[in-house]
Nucleic acid binder design. Structure first.
Lengths: 231, 231
DNA sequence: GAGGTTTTCGCCTTCTGGTCGAAAACGTTC
DNA sequence: GAACGTTTTCGACCAGAAGGCGAAAACCTC
C-alpha cells in the first residue's frame, strides 16, 4: 500500500477547557490494540469528500457536543514515519477550545484530564497536546482568543483566573482589564454580579466584543503608516 | 483507492526571496497535463521513511540549491477534496526563504516571479502562495525572521528596503534600527560599507545575532512576572 | 571650499504596560 | 448602626517602547 505512495490520513483534536488550577484536555481511553488502555486524543480517518477541518469536526462530534466547542484551528502536521505502528499514518492536528462554564456530555470512555497530571498517553499524542497548549498560550497575549475560554458574561476576576490558569503564571487583574478594553476586545455589559457569601463589592460584568478570532496586536513595531497599500 | 481511505500526500514549498520592489516566489512551469503550461510551486509526493519536512527539502533540492534556503517552516494543510483533479491529493505546505543576495542556479523550467504579477497558477497554488506571504509578513514584526531575507552583513538602509518590500509599505530606518537592536537581534559589525558613486556618509554594517528563528516579543501584555513556573 | 547626497544620532512626544494604594460597595458582627 | 473584613474598582505614578523630526556627520563631485 505504501509502495504506491498512498498513506492513511488522520485528524486529531487537542480540545482544551480551563479548569480550576490548570487546563484540562479531552482524552479517551483506548479499548483495543494497539496501545490498549492508553489515552488518546479524539480524531479519526480523513474521509472522502471532506477537508481536514470538516473531518475533525465530524470525529469530534462523537466525543463532545460540537455546539460547545467555541473555536477550532489547525495546529500542525505530524508525519514522523515512526510516530505509530505500521502501516504508516500522517495526522493533521487541531486545537479546540471549550468555555470553562460549559459541561458537555461525554461518552463513558472519555474524560477531561488536567494537563499537569496526564494518564499514560498513546502514540505521540502527548507531544501534540503540548503543541496545542503552547499555541493557546501564545495566542492569549496577542489575539482575542479568550472569548473561547470564558462564559458569555464574566467578571474581571473570573477572567483573571482563567488567564492565570491557562498561562500558568500570575496575571494582574488591573492590567488585564486595561489592556483588553483598550484593544476593544472587552466591553462592559453595564450589569453587576451578586457579591459572594463573604461580601465584597459587586463585580462589574463584561463580555467579549467578538466571538471570532481576531489578531489584536502582533505588530508592536513596523505597523503600516496609515493607508496600507496591500500587494 | 480512496475507498480504502488511503490518500496521496504531497508537500509544497512557497519559496520567497525579496527582490527590488516586491518579493518573488519560486515557480516552475508544468509541461504535462493536468494544467500544462501553468506555473506551480515546487514539491512532490511524500515518500516512505521521511517526514513532511524531510520530504519538502528533498523535492526542493531539485529546483534550487538547498544551501541557499535560509529558513523552512510548516505553513498549513490544504485538503479541499476539489483542490485538484481526481484522484484526491492532500498537501502540506511550507514556507522557504532565500536571502536577497543569493542567486542560486535553477532549472530551465523554473523562475522567480514577483508576487504582484504572477503568471497563470496551477491548482490552488495561488492561495498557498498568498498564505506564505501572509505568514512572512506577520513574523517579520515579532520574530528575527529577517535573518533569512538579508545578506550576512548589511546596512540599515538595505535592511529597510528589504522590510519595506516584504511588508508592502513604508518602513522607517530609524525605528527599524532602534527596535531590532533593542531586541538584541541586530548587532553592529564595526565595519562600514563604501559610499555609493554619488557620495554620502558610509553606512555602518550590521548582522543578525542569530540565524535560527526566535520569537522576540509576541507577549506585549501578560508576561510572566519573573520566574515562570511552567506547567 | 561649496554644494549635494546619504547615513546617523539625539530630542521630543505618544502610547503601552507594570505597580501600588486609596476608594467604593458589599456583608457580617457587635 | 457603627466598626470591621472582604472583594472589586479606579486613579496616580513610573518605566519602557516606538514614532517622528531635524540637525549633525561623513562622504562624493565640481
Amino acid at each position: 500500500m505504501e509502495a504506491e505512495g498512498l498513506i492513511a490520513h488522520d485528524v486529531l483534536a487537542v480540545v482544551l477547557r480551563i479548569t480550576s488550577p490548570v487546563p484540562s484536555v479531552l482524552l479517551w481511553q483506548r479499548a483495543r490494540e494497539p496501545q490498549s488502555g492508553r489515552w488518546a486524543l479524539p480524531g479519526g480517518r480523513l474521509g472522502a469528500g471532506e477537508d481536514v477541518e470538516a473531518s475533525v469536526r465530524r470525529h469530534l462530534a462523537e466525543k463532545v457536543d460540537l455546539a460547545e466547542v467555541a473555536h477550532v484551528e489547525q495546529l500542525s502536521v505530524f508525519s514522523d514515519p515512526d510516530r505509530g505502528p505500521q502501516p504508516r499514518r500522517v495526522a493533521t492536528a487541531f486545537l479546540g477550545l471549550v468555555p470553562s462554564d460549559a459541561d458537555p456530555a461525554i461518552p463513558g470512555d472519555t474524560a477531561w484530564r488536567p494537563v499537569d497530571a496526564l494518564p499514560p498517553i498513546a502514540f505521540d499524542h502527548g507531544e501534540i497536546t503540548r503543541a496545542g497548549l503552547d499555541r493557546l498560550r501564545a495566542k492569549l497575549s496577542y489575539t482575542n482568543i479568550g472569548f473561547a475560554l470564558a462564559p458569555d458574561v464574566f467578571s474581571i476576576s473570573e477572567l483573571r483566573r482563567l488567564y492565570a490558569a491557562a498561562l500558568g503564571h500570575h496575571v494582574s487583574a488591573t492590567n488585564l482589564q486595561r489592556v483588553l478594553t483598550r484593544r476593544g476586545v472587552l466591553v462592559p455589559t453595564g450589569t453587576t454580579a451578586a457579591p459572594g457569601p463573604t461580601g465584597g463589592r459587586p463585580a462589574a460584568l463584561f463580555r467579549f466584543s467578538e466571538h471570532t478570532l481576531r489578531v489584536t496586536d502582533p505588530f508592536a513595531a513596523l505597523r503600516p503608516p496609515s493607508g496600507a497599500g496591500a500587494v
